[in-house]
Design a protein around this nucleic acid. Structure first.
Lengths: 240, 240
DNA sequence: GCCGATTTGTCCGTATGTATC
DNA sequence: CGATACATACGGACAAATCGG
């Protein structure tokens, strides 16, 4: 990304994270920052808007922009971002493994169309996988890919990373994802393919993924053993 | 909120929700919308940015802005927003009740300071509550309020809505909240004050709330019985 | 209480770049 | 290649909140 506002956002964020701009202090004023980055008022404000959305600062009208991110607060999880299973594994330096249980082609019935948002009758690639983390089978994924957008998924690709295949080999760009998190009781199938021990409830993340064209290319249900599940988020109060 | 961009955002959103701009179609072009709302290019783009963040549209460079929100997709939960327990109850038309188990003043120890982000030594108001929804005790909240920001919490206020007290009576404005969702095994205390039946895991939402000054005014741990828990979110893929 | 300086918030008009068709 | 449409950036203007004298 070469946008000026993005570079400025990253630079200020880095200064917050390394303590140059400490928790609860104010950033230099807009005017000073405009000087420092020799950019327009407007461009700097865009960088500040990003910092706000991501929970790093809280602008105070007439006073300044206060830092509300603590150095201590290590972001082990991405905030409001999308990360593939493999990316998370690499970041946290834990051994991960993916087991493909099933890979088949199906046609979208009226019910799946209604439930997922895919058009009725199109061809879908269905993948069922189990994720092993540090030796334990903790996550069970059921993915439905739109076959004409994401063709040629093989067992090998599913074992590696379908996201890397989509973005790398196919050159598709993933733009946004909508997620819902609920709790559900473990099914017999969950119990069969996961190491649940005596845990009988799962965190279920249902998501829809759109490419840069706004086409729904994937629906996923990801079922996590609860005791290792973690999700982070920043919310902004809507102005009434 | 009287901002032009916000009004435009709401208007377009309404048109998406009522099907005027259907799922997978393109919005009128920027130029047309600038005409329609007789606003500047810049202001319209701000409204579009909001629509994108909230998961309603996906702009496609050189083509148009595609609608990716389905009419069917009823948002029972606010997306990326903060709602108090009472607001949620009112929206979903379910009888809710709050039981106050404890209300006391404590001083922030070094440990709580590190864990929560409050300064060491300040006075905190601690509240423990149980939420009853449709007759069942489903949620257990433990709140820590900064007493000098949120003074005068009584049992009656805690039974009603502390958020309404904060925003209504005190005139404080809540600006942002950071949340983390994890799964945890029910403790003896959970089992004592909630109707858990045979559910032994809880969804735990830990949040920090900041006012418009960027002051941390509240830390909360909210423990939910899993089978009714739901959380919704929209994530944007970071540009690499 | 008022005024003026500072700082953030909103909006406009314009110019240029880049992707799509 | 040209037309269209989104993306980024600039500079200027005014509004609104804060704070100190």
């Amino acid at each position: 990304m070469k946008a000026r506002y993005d570079a400025i956002y990253r630079d200020i964020r880095a200064s917050i994270e390394d303590g140059t701009y400490p928790y609860q202090e104010f950033l230099p004023s807009e005017a000073e920052l405009v000087q420092k980055y020799s950019c327009s008022h407007n461009t700097l404000r865009r960088a500040l808007a990003l910092l706000r959305e991501q929970g790093f600062v809280q602008p105070v009208h007439g006073k300044g922009v206060r830092v509300i991110h603590r150095e201590a607060e290590r972001t082990t999880f991405a905030i409001g971002e999308i990360e593939s299973f493999r990316e998370v594994g690499k970041r946290s330096h834990v051994a991960t493994e993916t087991i493909v249980l099933a890979l088949e082609h199906i046609t979208a019935t009226p019910e799946t169309a209604r439930a997922t948002g895919f058009e009725e009758g199109i061809d879908l690639t269905s993948v069922e996988r189990v994720r092993r983390i540090g030796g334990e089978r903790l996550i069970r994924d059921r993915n439905l890919f739109r076959t004409d957008s994401v063709p040629g998924i093989t067992k090998e690709i599913a074992e590696r990373s379908i996201y890397e295949y989509i973005e790398g080999d196919l050159g598709l760009r993933i733009a946004m994802s909508k997620r819902t998190i609920t709790g559900e009781r473990a099914t017999a199938r969950d119990r069969e393919v996961l190491d649940l021990d005596d845990v009988d409830y799962l965190a279920v993340v249902s998501s829809q993924t759109f490419d840069t064209q706004g086409i729904l290319i994937e629906c996923t249900e990801s079922r996590h053993r609860l005791d290792h599940f973690c999700f982070r988020d920043t919310a902004v109060r809507q102005k009434v």
